[in-house]
Design a binder for these strands. Structure first.
Lengths: 225, 225
DNA sequence: ACGTATTTTCACGGAATTTTCACATACCAC
DNA sequence: GTGGTATGTGAAAATTCCGTGAAAATACGT
């Protein structure tokens, strides 16, 4: 959903997003945006910062305040790169920005990136990293072609970490994300699962390449280069 | 990485980019470009559109198809300033183009602009200062591209200081902000952590550029220009 | 009900980190 | 320079944290 008062730019953005298969709707002002969005929620907003009659920031605030729209990512178009920090830094909740002038490739890349970040729960595709292959549908993990058997919890833990590579999770966060019932499980249980996963997927469990421990914090998954 | 068959122009481009501090590698044909780039990925491609034996557009397509190179920006050099070329080039995945003949100033400006657009930290929230990169999500600190290992407390201290650059903190304030338990820790412990961070991130720990001591007061983080 | 696979807990020991301290050195005022 | 104070340095002590092995608890199929 594009909100941009300059028709040339609006058309440009729409065109390039449609060229790679996205549906778009364009608005020249902030007016009916919230109403329409509520009717048929878009996957993403692209907002011009400068809009006649209440700027884009304001619109963003409205979107964020509306509970049904609050989760939808927002990308800002801005003429001044200097504004950028303000946008991301502020409590506005923008997810990225694109400085004008932008190249179509950049536009598409950022849109894809943001959508990827937010689509996570929906994504069902299998994950590849290094010589690891994780197939959520079949609950199968393959290491260098060899499939290894993992238990349900092991799999969910690995999947969650691998879907968020290079990102540190505390044990508590992992418990929240991976353990179904939010029962009272010792955070240290995570350690045990990490160990067993390492035994199964790491070349040398002593020097793990995938499942790195961030001492004092938690664990993270890394795709070896 | 410059790909241009006319040696005069290639030298010209290389010279002007090197004059402002960029490293360059030049190729007269599209041949080994992809291979070399894969070995040592450049920050940017400058491609002549007209190349003997498979033109620049083709090369660009190849680059875009290679997943490890696909993110690297491409600038085209073209003799024909026709708008059609521009659209075509951009849709192909080029990020800008420069029409020949070009002024050195224009060349450098465009290269800088494109690099600036793409240099933005990948994950939101990560801090960049000088040749330091601090990624709170992954708990990673990079110095000139090299990631250095820091402990949890070291990281929290560095992050806190870097988030408030050019601002002096007394040791007590740092203890309050960075240390988890509000226990009674000697303020001098801060010194030790500053030292260890300096050993890891400063070029010469004797003359620190980032972590400056403000005698009689405390420490502050400064981003060297 | 029984045996098996999985999940969860726990205590221990080694290792990494944190914290402290004594001393060396640098800085400042005089 | 001299003295006094503040910071840097090296290393040891204290503490925390994680990997390990194994046992207890739970689920699961036969």
């Amino acid at each position: 959903m594009i909100v941009e008062d300059d028709p040339d730019i609006a058309r440009l953005v729409a065109h390039h997003l449609e060229a790679v298969g996205y549906e778009t709707r364009s608005f020249a002002s902030a007016y009916e945006v919230v109403g329409c969005a509520r009717n048929e929620p878009p996957a993403l907003f692209v907002l011009d910062i400068m809009l006649p009659g209440g700027d884009g920031l304001n619109l963003c605030r409205q979107i964020r305040r509306n509970s049904s729209l609050a989760v939808i990512p927002v990308i800002f178009l801005t003429a001044k790169a200097a504004e950028a920090d303000r946008i991301l830094g502020l409590e506005l909740g923008a997810d990225d920005y694109i400085a004008k002038p932008f190249s179509p490739r950049e536009l598409v890349a950022r849109v894809k990136a943001v959508l990827r970040r937010f689509e996570r729960p929906l994504s069902q595709g299998s994950i590849r990293a290094g010589d690891l292959e994780i197939d959520p549908v079949g609950m199968v993990v393959k290491v260098r072609g060899e499939s290894v058997s993992v238990t349900a919890t092991e799999f969910r833990l690995l999947e969650h970490l691998a879907r968020n590579p290079a990102r540190v999770f505390t044990r508590d966060k992992l418990l929240d994300a991976v353990w179904r019932d939010t029962s009272f499980v010792t955070p240290r249980s995570v350690d045990v699962y990490v160990r067993r996963l390492r035994e199964k997927i790491e070349r040398d469990p002593e020097y793990p390449e995938y499942l790195r421990t961030m001492r004092g914090v938690g664990y993270k998954f890394e795709a070896p280069r």
